[in-house]
Nucleic acid binder design. Structure first.
Lengths: 232, 232
DNA sequence: CATCTATTGTGACTCCGGTCACGTCAAATT
DNA sequence: AATTTGACGTGACCGGAGTCACAATAGATG
């Protein structure tokens, strides 16, 4: 499907690009839709395109030798993934899977790489974004160091809100990940996540609102638990 | 202390640089020595220099809210750290600590950034290196997904050998990390790591050789355990 | 509407790694 | 040489998360 420069400019990464660069990229971009659980990027493959998420939610997923799933990161609308292909020709290290129905824009690697190299301000943006991902991974890894498991879950929830947008004292997460998807991010079993969610719901800290919305009613309390100032 | 272009060119990152670039950088470089446990880079600080490790071993370390140490990565001689400062002005996300006495070369951020931007082949190299770090973190995170703990330790040992150099069927690790330093990489207690090491030693798979050398006598067996084909 | 499938909810049991409390040992420091 | 320090070694105990099994939903799908 045809992609317009306007569509491309709606992504924060591409927004600062000059008009001409966007027009150069548009012919090499394509829109795609995926159903829940579909594989968007394949691990081990030499992907020749970068994936920009328009709507839905993606998750980077790895697999241990014994077949256990490992959650690496979530991709929120407006963000992108598979950007390692811009830097070298090594294969994509992890799978990227749609956790909900999702629509994405693929941009071919080489044209984007050209734009990046020609325009130094652009390579700055891409580099910054990659650096940001490293920071994100560092935070996520640090979460795993928490020995108190409910604390870990609260911390993850808190991160999820920040990745979306956070209002004053409450937040909502659209297309929230399933318990299992959260569990693999935190090296926990699905049941444990369920139990923590139950505890949070009974304390009116979180609440489900229909199918695709999770509402954090009491963000302050959530942060308390995430920071270990109070035990669940 | 004064640093020569020759010294700089001994680092794999800087090796491909043209002579003139190295001469441009040399005046902005300084050699430094650190004792064991010294802090080389400070978390939260806006470090204005990149750290190249000449000899010794460094470890990236984070801290959880409850004060627990989290091991993020090891830095081997020839490698570097603190490179995020090349991409943006955000603070260094984690501490970097010398796990052994170490000598490092600091290169000021701005001159290196200039060299990187002027010479597109250089920014390629730096970008590749950052991408490689993301892959490394992904592998490390995947290790944590293993439910079998001895397997996790063997996998880490195997990574440590690869980061150094690996010979046919045995390898050695100079300046091996302490049990505690390995433990925080794997979300384990120091005692657990000790017990696994004991098991590996009694099976003649690993062996200590003096203070600063750990010898992997049977690399094939180590890999077996790392891949879960045999249980410890 | 009926059926099927995936997600969520919940209890019981087990086990294994953390914690604690030591002891040992080697290396650095005085 | 004596002392101190930090790393390594090891046992006993215990708690808590994984696992298993199953029920109850809720969404998809025909």
């Amino acid at each position: 499907m045809q992609v317009t420069p306007e569509l491309l400019s709606r992504f924060t990464l591409l927004k600062p690009l000059p008009r001409e660069a966007l027009e150069h990229l548009a012919p090499h971009a394509a829109l795609a839709r995926y159903g829940r659980r579909a594989v968007v990027l394949e691990a081990g493959a030499r992907e020749d395109r970068i994936c920009f998420l328009f709507e839905g939610r993606l998750q980077g997923v790895g697999f241990t030798i014994d077949g256990r799933e490992v959650g690496l990161y979530f991709v929120e609308p407006g963000d992108f993934c598979g950007e390692l292909a811009l830097f070298d020709d090594n294969p994509q290290p992890e799978f990227v899977i749609a956790t909900t129905a999702a629509s994405v824009v693929f941009v071919a690697r080489n044209p984007l790489r050209e734009v990046m190299l020609q325009n130094s301000s652009v390579s700055n943006v891409v580099g910054r974004k990659l650096a940001e991902r490293v920071r994100q991974m560092t935070v996520q890894r640090t979460l795993l160091g928490l020995s108190n498991v409910p604390q870990r879950v609260c911390g993850q929830l808190y991160l999820l809100i920040n990745e979306a947008r956070r209002k004053d004292d409450s937040g909502e997460i659209v297309n929230p990940p399933t318990h299992k998807e959260i569990a693999i991010m935190l090296n926990l079993s699905r049941e444990t996540v369920t139990r923590v969610f139950q505890a949070l719901q009974s304390r009116r800290i979180i609440r489900r609102d229909g199918p695709g919305r999770l509402i954090v009613a009491d963000l302050a309390s959530l942060r308390h638990f995430a920071e270990g100032e109070e035990e669940l």
